[in-house]
């Protein structure tokens, strides 16, 4: 998994690329979230447009980031969620937890 951050008015968009699953991905993602929190950046958008597929561990990585950010007064929102990822979120009822948007602009506006 590749991860590319981009900042816009204190809101950071993390563009993920590849697969979101267990193994080293969890450490990379967790490390990035902690670094951003330390820098005071707690409003995060995760762009899943280029994520080919995700497994349950990948979903766990997202929920872990979500809870870490919420505990620190921040939030995490998802954009460009594929059909496959949507069906996992739906079946696990995590669609009730994660806010998903079709575009980065919509997600940015939702933080206001």
């Amino acid at each position: 998994m590749k991860l590319q951050p981009k900042e816009h008015d204190g809101i950071v968009t993390l563009h993920l690329q590849g697969k979101l699953m267990g193994g080293p991905d969890a450490d990379v993602f967790r490390g990035t979230i902690y670094d951003l929190i330390e820098q005071g950046k707690k409003k995060i958008i995760v762009d899943l447009r280029s994520v080919n597929w995700v497994n349950s561990t990948g979903i766990g990585i997202l929920t872990s980031a979500f809870t870490t950010l919420r505990k620190n007064g921040g939030d995490l929102k998802l954009i460009h969620v594929s059909e496959k990822i949507q069906s996992i979120l739906y079946v696990t009822k995590l669609n009730l937890i994660f806010e998903c948007f079709d575009s980065e602009e919509e997600a940015i506006t939702s933080f206001e």
């Binding site: 561990t57 766990g60 696990t92 937890i97």
Partner: peptide
């Protein structure tokens, strides 16, 4: 599975 504190087990 909706327990957001769980990394695994889904």
């Amino acid at each position: 599975p909706s327990d957001i504190h769980k990394l695994r087990g889904r």
